[in-house]
Design a protein around this nucleic acid. Structure first.
Lengths: 261, 261
DNA sequence: CACTTTGAGATGTCCGTACATATTAACGCA
DNA sequence: TGCGTTAATATGTACGGACATCTCAAAGTG
């Protein structure tokens, strides 16, 4: 185990900034720098390690890239997490890859109405009870007419005008249309997956038997300032659909996306 | 669109290293610096942008953190990707979080046998046809006896000895036991989710009705050198189980995990 | 020809300095 | 008391220099 927050070995073959980063990490792990508090300032660390500001900042950058600390100009270096956390990350290039929808399928809206979420509906959608949404429902089908799934899309009432764009067959995801039309940048996506079976109405619409097992995907889209602006619930016939994920060992990067004010 | 690879605006309110990074990015996007080639050296970039090495390196670091370029001492800066790829990443602290298994549940092995995968079984598990595995099957239940799911675990024959450790009730994940006992470090985890319904045998074992909708999770664990060493398939009663994910906007970090030799 | 050595060029590490800007708390004033 | 101002402090940006280490190719050597 490393000694915490004192002098570090020089000429150990490892870069000095790495030694400093490890030492700070040990200090955080041992509670010398508790989570939620600020690390000593750069000037103090320079004295403590008898190093230069450049080297100290390099060490702090390592910790930041590992998600251990968060740096903020004018405030200091906040300790976020007690230890180096090797993590499993899944990366997709765009939210579209979270869909796994066939490219040649289209969503056809057959019903649009304003809804106020009751308690049970709000719980199922993980939304606020009593909140108001505009719901658009319909099947997603291949060009050939073969059904892909039944979809309920809930959007904020102020975005209900997109229903006009969805009037005809549309293959683009709803979140993408909203994002471009209203400047909502998707910051977070929540996905919940569960199994169910088709009720009579939907089974009829998709041309499958009543009671057919189904895979349901509920996706929640959070935009600017973390505001929930869209919820979509899709119900797929089980035999035609599965959902795949892949996680790779790595570290989180708290990095550059937050640099823009 | 930015001009590519010439002088950049100073005093634009944005940091100079960001301007340089954007300019290089534009150059990469326009094919001035094709993917697979090396970017101009730091000294040349210093002259081109009339800046200091520190600033140029800061710009290159931004591109590296975004996964656009890869830097290598003694060689140069390699262009990996043509454009900035905003990505959605999901992070979990350990593979355990991928389970969502209740902590007070236990897996009880009721059958263990050597199997050779037929074509259909291999396709379903996404494993190699004809490969040999040791399969352990049984229910996972709460301490109270209430069923959580039915699980089939496939492990490499050389790891079959862990069945001894699983003889009694065991709440620890199988991958964790293998990891500790045999030194397999989990590098990648693949998950596939689909819906089904319980057949007679399993319905009886779990005490649910035949035909009850179920949610199936197939997990594949890849260890050292990317070798598939465990597959687990769990079938959950639909009404008791759902699977949640969350993705946050960010960038990939090609960074510090590779620093250790 | 095969192998070793050398050297140029590239990035990595580390030191110094100065000024800019955001944050926060203390201060002064109405 | 309430609010705007100011000052101290923190990190961010940018400049300069020096030496270390790695890579690759060219030159040298047997």
């Amino acid at each position: 185990m490393q000694q915490a927050s004192g002098a570090v070995a020089r000429g150990s073959g490892r870069p000095l900034y790495r030694e400093i980063a490890d030492d700070l990490l040990a200090g955080i792990g041992q509670g010398i720098f508790p989570v939620g508090t600020l690390l000593p300032g750069e000037m103090e660390l320079i004295q403590r390690y008898q190093s230069s500001r450049h080297t100290v900042r390099e060490a702090l950058r390592v910790l930041e890239d590992m998600g251990i600390v968060q740096r903020q100009r004018g405030r200091g270096t906040l300790v976020l997490s007690p230890e180096a956390q090797p993590a499993f990350v899944q990366m997709v290039k765009s939210p579209e890859e979270l869909f796994s929808y066939p490219a040649d399928s289209a969503f056809r809206v057959v019903a649009e109405e304003a809804v106020t979420l009751s308690g049970s509906a709000a719980q199922r959608l993980k939304a606020v009870k009593g909140s108001r949404w505009t719901r658009m429902s319909g099947p997603r089908t291949f060009e050939s007419g073969m059904p892909v799934c039944w979809t309920d899309v809930y959007v904020l009432p102020e975005y209900a005008t997109i229903a006009r764009q969805l009037g005809g067959a549309n293959s683009r995801p709803v979140y993408e249309i909203i994002s471009k039309a209203f400047g909502e940048e998707v910051q977070k996506i929540g996905i919940e997956i569960y199994a169910s079976s088709f009720d009579e109405e939907r089974a009829k619409a998709l041309g499958v038997d009543v009671g057919t097992p189904s895979l349901c995907l509920c996706r929640r889209y959070y935009g600017n300032k973390g505001r929930l602006f869209e919820i979509s619930v899709s119900e797929h016939p089980a035999q035609n659909y599965s959902y795949s994920l892949e996680f790779t060992s790595g570290w989180q990067n708290a990095g550059h996306w937050s640099w823009n004010k």
